[in-house]
Design a binder for these strands. Structure first.
Length: 590
RNA sequence: GUCCCCAUAGUUCAACGGAUAGAAUGGGAGCCUUCUAAGCUCUAGAUGUAGGUUCAAUUCCUACUGGGGACACCA
């Protein structure tokens, strides 16, 4: 097992871990081997705050793990526990082959709550990425049809992973590539020329991407009766490549409509642009020199039939054709060019958020780059597709009902609005609209990010998205409830306070969980997986909800009151920060 | 045909090789004169099959079965 070179722990957790390591090193003596000791979290909070298992150490030293745990627990209790000298770890208990450590609840609460309130919004941040640049390319749509829930998954993943790395101090460049040329667009253009009759999104009152998508679908539908359309599309493509003025003019017009539509969808998802935008139309001819040089250097080969290819069978992949017999380049050539362009930015790593159906294509791309001598760390963040209970989203007729990004968001906003009205008769129409928008997006983004990226999700437009249970709105609800209490409490909390009165089980578990936030951020980063954050936040919300049911806040007085206010302030802050990582807004009221 | 991914409660998803396989939803039973019931409590319910590695396997390996994806001089 590899150990991270640097860990993102809260200061409180770091203190506890150092105490444990120090104790174990001394107590185990010559049997202590750092590579076999892992401090983990026990499966249940009541078992303790940290745990170490002795399987490995015992095996290496020929001892019995149960006895080791028992002896070490005794040693801790007789030597350390009695001292009460300001340590975080107060007790140790041997349970089978595990040694469980318990924090001093009061001292740990002091440390954790002070740290969170002291660091404010920066709690959980790290500088481990200081001076390191990474680029993450995501979204990268084809520009011939509107966006689907599949694109939304891509966007949510890319956006969230970007946030995670930013928090760890990396310089993150968010990039996208518009696939704005080629046969698909030519088809939409051909259909528009034939049946468009000078209509426009404005004249038809349709969003630009939907407008163009309509013609793309029309092309496919009418092709059956009118096979000549195939030729018409090819003709347009050829004219486009030659720079035919009329074709280019039409293309610019239609691309403008599509990109305008995309921009609207992105805004409705609260995504506000990318640091770098690449356009296929601007780079698609580039890269040919690289291939020819590679051929000259013996890296690539020329087939007797005339095409140039990368020999990849030696690496267990099919060979990849790069240049056609007529000398024109295939799509991957511009990918190679773009990757090399990126590598000139001194990147620590370059991440591609691309669906798993392109696993092979990206493996080939990365291998070719390696063959060319570019050893940039390329990572494919591969995600599974979203399917419907009865099959794929895409079909010949375009996309299936309920899976378009725009209609999905709109439907969700409408049902969220009904809920808000039901629960909040007193809010203004405008406010209700704002809140329902926040909730709708919370539900959608959480739904997508709560599962591992590579899982193929079965999505039922009628049933899948809900506002109850393990959902985004549940987390938002916790935030809103805390906000409501704080509004009523009207106290100033001191960051230096000692939170001596946080004694209940519910408070202890909350503090314990709060202290783990930074380590979950790191876990999410290592795996490029925002679901580590959703998992963390769901548990935080659970702990809070149980606390809320059982522990009164506004009804108690004095120090107990102010301590609990401090605690829930910390919960609110961590919840807001975590939701922000997911791209979800935290409402004050709902 | 070759390669890749997946298989866990009725359903949709969890589980760095470790403690009693967790949630949610749906089913059953409760909790609003008390800080927002989008909540809380209790209850029934699952690792495709056969081997192997390991002190320990949902997790790693092999085969099988069943799903999905990829393998164009398309993008």
């Amino acid at each position: 097992m590899e150990k991270a070179t640097q860990n993102n722990y809260s200061k409180a957790e770091m203190k506890a871990r150092l105490e444990i390591m120090e104790f174990l090193a001394r107590g185990l003596g010559k049997n202590y081997k750092e590579e076999y000791i892992f401090i983990e979290y026990p499966p249940e909070p009541e078992m303790g705050d940290y745990t170490v298992s002795f399987f490995r150490v015992a095996k290496e030293s020929g001892l019995n793990p149960q006895e080791m745990a028992k002896n070490m627990a005794e040693l801790f209790e007789t030597e350390i526990a009695v001292k009460k000298d300001g340590r975080i770890i107060a007790h140790a208990k041997g349970v089978g082959p595990y040694l469980n450590f318990m924090n001093d609840a009061k001292r740990f609460a002091d440390n954790v709550v002070q740290e969170i309130l002291g660091e404010g919004e920066k709690y959980g941040y790290s500088d481990m990425g200081h001076g390191k640049k990474i680029m993450i390319e995501y979204f990268s749509p084809n520009t011939n049809k509107p966006l689907t829930i599949g694109h939304v998954r891509n966007i949510c993943l890319g956006y969230s992973v970007s946030r995670i790395y930013k928090i760890l101090g990396y310089g993150v460049i968010e990039a996208t590539l518009y696939n704005d040329r080629g046969i698909a667009i030519s088809k939409a253009m051909a259909a528009y020329l034939k049946w468009g009759d000078k209509a426009s999104p404005r004249s038809e009152n349709i969003k630009g991407d939907h407008f163009v998508g309509k013609y793309y679908v029309m092309f496919g539908e009418k092709l059956v009766d009118d096979p000549s359309m195939e030729e018409a599309a090819k003709d347009i493509l050829i004219k486009w490549e030659k720079g035919d003025k009329k074709v280019i003019q039409l293309w610019k017009k239609m691309m403008g409509w599509v990109l305008d539509g995309f921009s609207t969808t992105l805004k409705s998802l609260s995504i506000h642009g990318f640091d770098v935008e690449y356009y296929e139309s601007k780079i698609y001819t580039k890269g040919k020199e690289i291939i020819l040089k590679g051929l000259g250097d013996g890296i690539f080969k020329k087939h007797p039939e005339g095409y140039i290819y990368a020999p990849l069978e030696q690496y267990g992949m099919p060979d990849k054709i790069l240049l056609r017999s007529d000398g024109t380049s295939l799509y991957i050539v511009q990918d190679i060019y773009l990757s090399i362009l990126k590598s000139k930015k001194n990147l620590e790593q370059s991440i591609y958020v691309v669906g798993s159906e392109q696993d092979l294509a990206l493996r080939q791309l990365f291998k070719i780059l390696e063959m060319l001598g570019y050893h940039l760390k390329n990572i494919h963040l591969s995600y599974g597709m979203i399917r419907l209970p009865d099959g794929k989203i895409k079909s010949r007729e375009g996309i299936k009902h309920g899976t378009g990004a725009d209609e999905l968001i709109e439907n969700l906003e409408n049902s969220a609005l009904e809920e808000v009205k039901k629960r909040n008769g007193d809010v203004s129409k405008k406010k209700a609209g704002e809140i329902s928008r926040i909730i709708a997006l919370g539900a959608l983004k959480y739904y997508i990010l709560n599962v591992n990226a590579k899982t193929i999700v079965v999505f039922d437009p009628e049933k899948s998205l809900s506002f109850v249970g393990n959902t985004g709105p549940y987390l938002q609800y916790v935030h809103a409830r805390i906000s409501s209490i704080l509004k009523k409490s009207k106290v100033k909390i001191s960051r230096r306070a000692e939170f001596s009165s946080l004694r209940t089980k519910e408070e202890k578990y909350l503090v314990q969980h709060l202290s783990k936030f930074p380590s979950y951020i790191q876990r999410a980063a290592e795996k490029f997986d925002p679901s580590a954050i959703t998992l963390y936040l769901y548990e935080l919300a659970r702990h809070f909800s149980i606390f809320y049911e059982n522990v009164p806040i506004l009804k108690v007085e004095g120090k107990l009151f102010s301590d609990r206010i401090a605690l829930i302030t910390a919960v609110k802050q961590v919840m807001a920060c975590g939701l922000k990582i997911l791209g979800i807004d935290a409402p004050e009221k709902m």
